[in-house]
């Protein structure tokens, strides 16, 4: 089943100079190992290429069920120099959560159960 990371994780992002920190958190602790195995630094770097030059470093926080991505050269100069609407990378976590992922039928069932009738309508086109 093809879906997007957003259904399995939430997160928050912000700036440090011209770098962006993107923290991604498993919505259920049991999903953390899958996310850790699936979302590598390399894939994030490729996916975010239109937004950020990189490189991307990944850090694991298994006790929090979270990953932190330090994305270098991400904000078009950072601070007040950046010309971007989102000069501080506040929306980058939500951008990264658009990442398409492939989940097993079993995991997809868990995802459906987790969301119930709150399940967002997320296109994978």
């Amino acid at each position: 089943m093809k879906t997007r990371l957003y259904l399995l994780a939430h997160g928050r992002s912000g700036d440090k100079g011209n770098d962006c920190n993107i923290g991604i958190i498993a919505r259920k602790e049991e999903w953390y190992p899958f996310i850790e195995n699936t979302v590598s630094a390399g894939e994030v770097e490729t996916f975010l290429k239109p937004l950020a030059e990189g490189p991307v470093e990944r850090f694991e926080l298994p006790k929090l069920g979270a990953l932190n991505f330090l994305v270098r050269n991400a904000l078009g100069g950072g601070g007040s120099k950046s010309l971007r609407l989102d000069a501080q990378g506040k929306t980058y976590a939500q951008g990264l959560l658009k990442m398409p992922i492939e989940v097993s039928d079993d995991l997809w069932k868990e995802v459906q159960e987790f969301w119930g009738d709150r399940m967002p309508n997320i296109s994978t086109d």
Partner: peptide
């Protein structure tokens, strides 16, 4: 916990 986790991972660089 989810709310606190979002703030914990905010702008932290190397978490160690």
């Amino acid at each position: 916990e989810a709310v606190v986790k979002e703030q914990l991972v905010y702008e932290i660089g190397d978490p160690k």
